[in-house]
């Protein structure tokens, strides 16, 4: 049971999961600075709740669950802003990321951007973060059969979007 009093164990968890959690946030939000904020919030919360965990796997799942909830809040806030009239919000986000990364990153960004959030999150957790179905189900607060079905639909949808964007290359 981790107790982060002396910081050693916290630093170990941080170093072990920071890249994965950042990758997840960055890809689901498509905007690095928002991902930065979410990752900081998530690890500060981890530090605050440190003593309540039972083992490493529960920390891993907790981190992704927490990151996912925070990302969904950011996406919700963004859509509120867009509804209020800031139409260029989404376009700017995509442009920033596209110019910062190479071609394959830009392809990924464009593809994920067109995928519904419910499919994007499950696909990223599986393909980008290599979580198994049980871990994904826990992080998304659902069941393993639901994860299996949602992943299939996400792949199917992603394939369609890929073809639409890039043809059969």
């Amino acid at each position: 049971m981790p107790d982060f009093g002396n910081g050693k164990e916290f630093t170990e968890f941080y170093n072990q999961y920071k890249a994965g959690v950042y990758r997840f946030c960055c890809r689901i939000l498509n905007r690095p600075e928002d991902a930065n904020d979410v990752v900081q919030d998530v690890f500060i919360k981890l530090y605050e709740q440190g003593v309540r965990f039972n083992g490493e796997s529960s920390v891993k799942v907790w981190l992704y669950k927490s990151a996912r909830n925070k990302c969904l809040n950011v996406i919700r806030d963004r859509s509120k802003l867009t509804n209020l009239g800031s139409d260029d919000d989404k376009t700017i986000a995509t442009d920033i990321v596209s110019s910062d990364y190479d071609d394959s990153a830009a392809m990924v960004t464009r593809l994920l951007d067109q995928l519904a959030v419910e499919y994007r999150e499950v696909l990223i957790l599986r393909e980008w973060n290599d979580l198994n179905y049980e871990e994904i189900a826990a992080a998304l607060e659902t069941t393993v059969p639901a994860v299996k079905s949602r992943l299939f639909k996400a792949r199917k949808k992603a394939g369609e979007i890929y073809r639409k964007l890039y043809g059969d290359e």
Binding site: A19, Y22, R27, S104, A105, M107, V108, L111, E127, W128
Partner: peptide
């Protein structure tokens, strides 16, 4: 595509 995608920390 996902495996090739480098997200720099």
């Amino acid at each position: 595509l996902a495996h090739k995608d480098q997200v720099d920390f």
